[in-house]
Design a protein around this nucleic acid. Structure first.
Lengths: 193, 193
DNA sequence: GGTAATTTTTGACCTAAATCAAAAAGTTAA
DNA sequence: TTAACTTTTTGATTTAGGTCAAAAATTACC
């Protein structure tokens, strides 16, 4: 990929790991830029997720169907590297959907290219390590919020981390992200004002 | 460390990443073996956790104080590499306690040695990557159980993964691991029989 | 610009699990 | 072997948040 066009991606990489100019160029050259309309599924259940995505613009939601209910697993937005990690790591079919909530500008790289680079290039390996550490801490934190916080506290924590969440995502997605119903979230919100 | 004495540790490493004989020897040589009586704190809140532990024998619990309640974050047992990752990764004080529940045989390595090896040795770097992937998937799974499973389903999931948990850990630790009270767990259990 | 479709709010009621309290069972230690 | 302590169980009651249903507010689209 032309280096000129990939400034947001470069920023996303630099935020995690500073590479030599050559390594950075090499790494970026394996990404492909694309645009996605909202609601155009990026990953669907049952499919092996063999790509990683960098969100340059827009936002997405990842969810799973539990009975007839859509449960939000996570939100992704500008600056995030995302994929279905369970599928990505173990090379097994995904259990989750990833869907743009706004129109997105995305940079994507194939699993094959990514792991080849990771295995050959120490700087890029280090980049992946930072990504994994970031994800580890994200999920640890999310689990601990779910473990012992009330609905109100979980909402406060989300709004602190992502103040715009309330206006970017529909209520039912935010509610199920917090592990509460949308009625409860609506009541919480009106109580707040 | 003498290679003869460290068979369990070697198994723990091999399960995650096959190293060359020389790399394996090198890696193991940086670990130190120790025994720990139950209830002898391994990590306490406020302390920077700059060691990683391999459990060769015994089991531990990690918990956090929330008000006057002890909340179980995770359990560790034979074959696990453990540390307070939040502290380990960011080099900040730990928010959690790690405490042996049974007498333990432990192999430990310092953060400094570990990261030096990781940065110099591609095989060991790969080992760390596998550890992070393992942890990532653990927490993702744990969060999703907490997100949409009932008390009964969460208990079933724990007993499936760790059938002996019920006899190794006190009830209050298991209950708070599941995000329920010990009264509820006791009632669930008696209902089961 | 008006109608349909979707999303959010509100209300009435219900329930899984929490809380509080005390009894029972198990463990330790003298 | 008994007293003291800890852990687990049982019972009565409460509550945060769920469920179901319908109204209100938004948004989408001929």
């Amino acid at each position: 990929m032309n280096n000129q066009q990939s400034i947001p991606l470069r920023e996303g990489i630099r935020k995690r790991q500073i590479l030599s100019e050559a390594d950075e160029k090499l790494f970026i050259s394996f990404f492909r830029r694309t645009e996605l309309k909202s609601k155009t599924l990026l990953v669907r259940e049952g499919q092996i997720c063999d790509e990683m995505y960098y969100i340059a613009r827009g936002c997405v939601v990842s969810y799973q169907w539990v009975g007839n209910k859509q449960v939000t697993l996570w939100f992704g937005h500008e600056g995030d590297f995302i994929t279905c990690f369970k599928s990505w790591i173990n090379n097994v079919p995904s259990h989750e959907y990833i869907e743009p909530v706004e129109d997105c500008e995305i940079y994507l790289i194939s699993r094959k290219d990514f792991f080849q680079l990771v295995n050959e290039n120490p700087g890029i390996h280090h980049f992946y390590r930072v990504l994994l550490e970031e994800g580890y801490l994200y999920w640890e934190n999310r689990a601990s919020l779910l473990l012992f916080k009330s609905a109100e506290e979980k909402l406060a924590a989300l709004l602190k981390r992502a103040p715009k969440a309330m206006s970017r995502y529909p209520l039912n997605q935010i509610a199920s992200y917090l592990g509460i119903t949308q009625e409860t979230l609506s009541r919480l919100r009106s109580k707040k004002i």
